[in-house]
Write a protein that binds this DNA or RNA. Structure first.
Length: 557
RNA sequence: GCGCUCGUAGCUCAGUUGGAUAGAGUGUUGGUUUCCGAAGCCAAAGGUCGUGGGUUCGACUCCCGCCGAGCGCGCCA
């Protein structure tokens, strides 16, 4: 419908102003129903180049509009807006569209290339180091990242969900000595406990499991502890595997699945890191100074150059990151989206600089980043500090157990990623009935209940006469339903899952208002079927939207 | 000090490439069920969109200064 109206306006513009090129025709959905179903500011945009009064121009544009079966009337309003009012028949058409498309309603193919083939996109998210269980911040990344993946899938992309483990750095050494200390029975307060060691309770659990020679399985690896506290390699391998297993359980509880787990250690083992370093040296963007190797990231917009190889011979963390992204590119991802905490934002410039220095055809600004701000957790009116090292720790699994998976996912995905989020555990638990996610699910359950009582074949609803629909609530609901495809496209374009959450709240509100105002199971057979058809379509869109958030759509609550 | 993100109702937050009277939820107040689910609906009240300039037909939105919050600024990850 939107493209149809745009074409009409383009035709009119060509008649009125043949000399104005590159005209960007904007159609918006007015906030108020008085202003029609669509509005355009075309006359105001043309006013300047044509040096004419916008309202006069609006009249000329309307006169030049080709006739259309979908438009009931057009009006000029305000400073020169052209408002379009659709006839009821074209508004009703959305119901049949939805019932025909089913769970595909709202999807599009913007992820396809010029030849209509799907393109590969990777969403990397969570990517927590295996040094502790996942906490609320990881949960935000998990909720947002998974929704992004679902959105891109709905927009026609071939999506790979990927989790990257930093299992080869100083933090792993730290984990190893922390577990070792616990194996020796050194308490976290004792002066011989590693100064920056991990002090969480879970370190104790790992130590105990190590000493009793447990076996853990995580992803594709299986490790049996040697139980020998002089065997640092065994402690390291066992600790990492143990925590990877714990994180797997966290993700499972959050109902998130990954397609690929990548390991930093593998990039060293298979020579990718070394190959990348050699390629960077060859590129001419490196130099030796103070016994270290530097990358001239200032050539690519950084504010100072960065060390690649330290004086002790080891590489700094962004070197394997560059190697990893080179590998992503070589795997054919024309698009990569990294979802991570905003505290890592300084890596963006360095990784992109490294990729540009390699000069292997990677476009500037690749990969994309979505950064989420900190999550502050409140309990009992006080902030809970999320320090792995201090040991006071709100884990994602605790949160899911208290609040529920659906509500946790909704809460963490329903806000703009780049604004700070306050997660009040007491509020989420004590007032869980006021949680917006239940409001949306309730709308879905209500429809299920009505259709259940109707107790007939829903397939009949796809071909009923819709002409009886037209009251204020029905019109608003139909309009909202017709917006869904635009919302899905926009949310993907903006990489902003919260747009879906907000839309669903409004759709649920429309449904609840309608539900309270009118009855559906009535004697008037024609009207009844039309209304059931409308709420059946609403049920479908609620379900599709909740699916995009990874939230369930229960039939009963 | 420099960089990034942000500042909208008492609180938590939306606000679609600059558009018409800035919206929800929650909280407060008052209504609403012989009727498909009241986890609902309806209404009232609540605002100098941090602040001061600028750009233009028009600014919560774009630009600059200032104030305030978070994060980053390491040969840690």
């Amino acid at each position: 419908m939107k493209t149809h109206l745009t074409e009409l306006l383009a035709t009119a513009a060509k008649t009125i102003a043949p000399d104005v090129a590159n005209l960007n025709i904007v159609l918006e959905r007015p906030k108020s129903a008085e202003h029609g179903d669509f509005a355009s500011n075309l006359a105001m945009v043309l006013a300047k180049p044509l040096k004419q009064n916008p309202r006069v121009l609006a009249t000329q544009i309307i006169d030049a509009l080709p006739t259309s079966d979908y438009i009931a009337k057009t009006e000029i309003a305000g400073a020169g807006f052209i408002n379009f009012f659709l006839n009821t028949q074209s508004k009703q058409a959305v119901i049949k569209d939805i019932l025909r498309a089913g769970k595909r309603y709202g999807c599009n193919q913007s992820g396809h290339d010029a030849n209509g083939k799907t393109q590969k996109v990777q969403v990397e998210f969570v990517s927590a180091n295996p040094t502790g269980p996942l906490h609320v911040g990881h949960g935000r990344g998990a909720a947002v990242g998974d929704c992004l993946a679902r959105l891109l899938d709905a927009n026609g992309w071939d999506v790979t969900r990927e989790f990257y483990y930093n299992d080869a750095g100083a933090q792993i050494d730290n984990l190893t000595v922390s577990v070792l200390a616990r194996c020796k029975g050194i308490s976290t307060e004792h002066e011989h406990f590693p100064e920056d060691g991990y002090r969480g309770e879970y370190i104790n659990d790992i130590a105990a499991a190590f000493l009793t020679k447990h076996t853990v399985v995580a992803d594709d690896i299986e490790v049996t502890a040697s139980g020998d506290i002089n065997d640092l390699n065994s402690i390291r391998a066992f600790s990492v595997a143990y925590l990877r297993h714990e994180q797997d359980l966290d993700l499972k509880a959050f109902q998130i699945q990954f397609d690929v787990f990548s390991l930093e250690s593998a990039l060293y083992a298979n020579g990718t890191v070394e190959k990348t370093v050699q390629a960077l040296i060859k590129s001419g963007h490196t130099y030796e100074q103070d016994d270290a190797l530097w990358l001239k990231t200032t050539d690519f917009g950084d504010d100072k150059d960065r060390v690649m190889r330290k004086t002790d011979g080891g590489y700094t963390y962004f070197v394997p990151d560059v190697a990893y992204h080179t590998e992503k590119w070589n795997r054919g991802f024309v698009r990569v989206i990294n979802e991570q905490g905003a505290d890592h934002h300084s890596t963006i410039t360095r990784v992109r600089a490294g990729l540009q220095a390699l000069d292997i055809g990677i476009p500037q600004g690749w990969p994309d980043y979505v950064l989420h701000q900190m999550v502050t957790v409140m309990r009992g009116g006080e902030e809970v500090k999320l320090s792995k090292r201090a040991g006071s720790y709100v884990t994602l699994r605790d949160l899911i157990e208290e609040v529920g998976c659906d509500a946790t996912r909704y809460f963490l995905a329903a806000r703009r990623a780049d604004s700070q989020l306050v997660f009040d555990i007491d509020l989420a638990r004590s007032q869980s009935n006021d949680n917006p996610v239940y409001y949306i699910q309730y709308a879905h359950a209500r429809i299920c209940s009505v259709l259940g009582q109707w107790n007939d074949d829903p397939a009949k609803l796809a071909h009923v006469d819709l002409t009886p629909l037209g009251n204020q609530h029905e019109t608003a609901l139909m309009q909202r339903l017709s917006e869904f495809p635009e919302v899905v496209a926009n949310a993907a374009h903006e990489l902003a899952p919260h747009i879906i959450a907000n839309y669903l709240k409004e759709l649920a509100s429309d449904l609840h208002s309608y539900y309270n105002e009118y009855k559906f199971l009535i004697d008037d057979e024609q009207l009844k079927m039309a209304r059931l058809s409308l709420i059946c379509a609403t049920q479908q869109v609620l379900k599709n939207g909740l699916d995009l958030l990874g939230v369930s759509a229960p039939k009963k609550m």
